[in-house]
Computed example of a mutant assay.
Amino acid sequence: MMNKEGLDPHFLHAWLAARSLARGLPMPLPDHGGLRVDTGSDMETVRWVFPRMADGLKALARTIHQPRQFVKVCETSEALRAALPTHWTIHAPSYVMRANGIMPRRQLPDGYSIAFEQSGAVTSVRIATDTGALAASG
């Protein structure tokens, strides 16, 4: 899915669409050669995600002057820094997760429990400790 030219744009669109569906967000829209999701949260109002470095990303970055608007690209932090205006802040990297094939089922260690919740096409999974603390979710 990832090669020297970035991430497959169709895979990225599918991943973002599933993320939007799972989080109750609007579907991603094409914008500046990437995809835009209007997240509307207190932490992030909008995010643009690009499968690779593109001129549209550089042009977009020059027009953004409000906080909580994020630009993400499937590229190194150094490449992103070189494309952005100097006043931008680079956050720690995050990753597009994927699996090849069927995920194996494993037994949880003692002291953990798992709960599934189905809502339409979305299945949520939560793993908690025996004290109720969230250990993982997806």
Rank of each mutant, 00 (worst) to 15 (best):
H87M: 09
R126K: 14
M27N: 07
G138C: 07
S113P: 00
R68V: 05
R68H: 06
H91Y: 13
I127K: 05
I114H: 06
N100R: 13
H13S: 12
L25W: 11
A83V: 03
R126H: 08
P85W: 07
A79D: 08
T89K: 14
K58E: 14
L134H: 06
R68Q: 10
I127R: 05
H13Q: 14
A115Q: 15
T123S: 12
Q66K: 15
R19K: 14
F11E: 09
A22L: 03
M97Q: 08
A17K: 04
C74K: 03
T39F: 05
G138Q: 07
E78H: 04
M53K: 11
L134A: 13
T89P: 01
R106G: 07
I102W: 04
T131M: 13
L57E: 01
L108P: 07
L35A: 04
R62E: 13
V49Y: 02
S41E: 12
L108W: 02
F11N: 03
I102D: 07
F50K: 05
W88E: 03
W15D: 06
G120Y: 02
A135Q: 04
H87F: 09
A61Q: 08
P26H: 10
R62K: 15
M97E: 03
R81C: 08
A17M: 03
T63F: 02
E117F: 00
I64Y: 06
R81E: 05
S77H: 00
L25A: 10
V71K: 02
E44H: 08
T86R: 15
F50M: 09
S77I: 00
T131Q: 14
C74F: 03
L21D: 06
T123E: 09
H10M: 12
F70I: 03
V96Q: 08
M103I: 13
A14L: 11
S113F: 01
Y95W: 08
I114M: 12
G120N: 07
H91K: 15
T39K: 15
L35M: 09
N3S: 14
H32E: 07
D42G: 13
S41I: 05
D110A: 15
D130V: 06
A115P: 00
A59T: 10
M27W: 01
V96L: 14
L60R: 06
G132F: 08
W48K: 08
T63C: 11
W88L: 11
R126I: 07
A99I: 09
G101P: 01
G40I: 06
L108M: 06
W88Q: 10
G6Y: 02
P85L: 12
S77Y: 00
A79F: 03
P93R: 09
F70G: 02
L7H: 03
V122G: 03
T39R: 15
R106E: 11
K72P: 00
L57H: 02
P28H: 10
I127D: 05
